[in-house]
Amino acid sequence: MSERILSVLVEDKPGVLARVALTISRRGFNINSLSVGPTNIEGRSKMTIVTELESVEQVKKQLNKLVNVIKIVELDPDNTIESEVLLMKVSINKETQTSVIEKANLSGAKSVDVGQDYAVFELTGTSKELIKFEKLLKPYGIIEMIRGGRIAIQTKL
């Protein structure tokens, strides 16, 4: 696996996401996923950036040049817990309803809303699990699917 996960601590200031995104596109880096959210520290946000091995050193160095970027940690793949949320709206009918919901629930997904001809599921898991889930329900007709971006945390200090 040539993926690398960067955990980027930034100052929670206006425009910081734009600065990071511009740096990434300006330098032509490959980014597989980027997510942003607040942390337990006031005034600090965390970005999780998933990139490829070949660009990781330059991504780190170029992002570190941004004044609002405080710290970048490359997570150790063996000691990292990764998670991502997925919302999926699947087409159902009388014949498929039971098996779709059953399959989804067996995969650990939660049925959030079930209508006459659709069901909405929520699943949290690794990106592999989300891809597997997508493949599983694809034959029934996915109307809409959104993934929230990968977040990760290192287990050891």
Partner: peptide, 14 residues
């Protein structure tokens, strides 16, 4: 201006 000059400056402020 801030958006236009993000990549033309070392840093900028509004």
């Amino acid at each position: 201006t801030v958006g236009l000059t993000i990549s033309a400056t070392k840093h900028n402020y509004l």
